[in-house]
Amino acid sequence: MTVFHRNATKGPLPEHLRGGVIAIGNFDGVHRGHQTVLQRALDIAAERGAPALVLTFEPHPRTVFRPQTPVFRLTPAPLKARILEGMGFSAVIEYPFDRSFSELSAAGFIRAVLLDWLHGSQVVTGFDFHFGKGREGGPAFLMAAGEDNGFGVTLVDAFRDENASVISSSFIRKLVGEGAVAEAAGQLGYRYTVEAEVIGGKRLGRTLGYPTANMQLPPETELRNGIYAVRFRRPDGSHYDGVASYGRRPTVTSNGAPLLETFLFDFSGDLYGEVAAVSFFGHLRDELKFDGLDALVVQMKRDEEEARTLLSGVRPLGGLDRRLCF
């Protein structure tokens, strides 16, 4: 799959990607609601023998307009692209979103992006998609533009979960912030996953019998501090069950930066420098400050046992979860 970064100074879209079926949206989280839009685009593309593309925007618009409070991304761009590749898309178009682009009119977006650059044959998006300066372009505008310019438009109704509630990225962020990763998985359709490079640490875990793979997550990450049952996936596709701690390590430091530390079960080796993924299956407990390292180790053994028990019975939630976590 191609991840294409649009830049006005670069040439046209590659010929083999023109005339495609284009799913448009931010798709942060690629949750079950997003998946209904994306799957519709894939189905139409398959019927027509056309390329299936995703048009998304980087960085997230909220980060542009409120840089002092960047949005917590459920799926940063590289992870989102990997998920979309797993779904079967030919390319992800990461269009740069900045203040200049936000001033482009709805008609200008249709002409400059959808027609002159992408040469799209069909646009698929959610029923409430708005675009252009001041969000002036809506579903009716898009459908009229399609009729006038020869491309089809498919609007997909809001997806509701088993409780008839509309699934949203905002609600999933709230669940992750509460540590409710199992509930978040039900909304996402796969286990909440992070990706980062494995970095060096103080190697205290090794001296305690619990060597960990340490990862620094983006500062805007809102994952609740605590202990989790996880699955760790290496770049080569191999994966290991484990138990992870996310937080500031209050037993061993008074002012530590948040760190994700994962102890991999039944593994020995060097992981430094690898960009790995950690998927969260369950929240075991909150982060606590113990009265010394001996008490910490006793609790870590309990956490390991609980995580092994939880992970022994897990099953894929669906095809996407299987590709990411199994």
Rank of each mutant, 00 (worst) to 15 (best):
R135M: 07
S168E: 00
G150M: 10
R191S: 12
V153Y: 06
P139C: 12
A112I: 05
A182M: 11
V194W: 03
V166E: 00
R206C: 03
D157F: 06
L115C: 08
F127M: 10
D116Y: 04
Y192S: 08
G138D: 13
A145R: 08
S169Y: 04
Q187Y: 12
A164K: 14
G134Y: 04
K202F: 07
T212M: 09
A182I: 15
S102V: 07
L204S: 07
K133C: 05
E197K: 02
S165I: 15
E136V: 00
D161G: 09
L175C: 05
A184W: 14
I199T: 13
G200C: 05
R173W: 04
G137L: 00
M215K: 04
G150A: 04
G108R: 04
G152E: 13
F141M: 03
E195N: 05
T193H: 08
I172Q: 05
E147D: 06
F171T: 15
S170G: 01
A158L: 06
G134C: 06
S102I: 00
L118G: 11
E103C: 10
L104E: 07
M215T: 10
T212R: 05
T154D: 14
A164D: 15
D148Q: 14
L142F: 10
T212K: 13
A144D: 15
I110S: 02
F129M: 03
P211L: 05
D161H: 04
R203Q: 14
M215V: 14
G152D: 11
G200Q: 08
E147V: 09
Q216A: 12
E162N: 13
I172K: 03
S170H: 12
L217D: 06
A106S: 01
H130N: 06
K202D: 12
A185I: 09
Q216P: 10
S169V: 11
R160G: 10
A164Y: 07
F127K: 12
G126S: 02
G205C: 00
E162R: 13
I172P: 07
M143P: 03
P211M: 05
D148I: 10
A145F: 03
L208S: 03
A144Q: 13
G201N: 07
V156W: 09
G150R: 00
A112H: 10
V181A: 12
N214S: 11
G205S: 12
M215C: 15
F159G: 10
S169P: 08
F129A: 00
Y192A: 10
F129S: 00
K133T: 03
G177Q: 01
N214A: 11
P218K: 01
A107V: 10
V181M: 05
R191Y: 13
H119G: 08
T212V: 00
S165M: 15
R135Y: 02
R160L: 12
L188W: 09
E183I: 02
T125A: 11
S165R: 14
V176C: 12
Q216K: 11
T154V: 14
L155Q: 07
R111D: 15
G150I: 06
T207I: 05
V166M: 01
G138F: 00
G137I: 00
I199F: 07
N214C: 05
G201S: 04
E178I: 12
G120Q: 09
L155N: 04
M143K: 14
F171W: 12
L104N: 01
D128G: 03
G177P: 04
F171V: 12
T207Q: 01
K133E: 08
A112R: 15
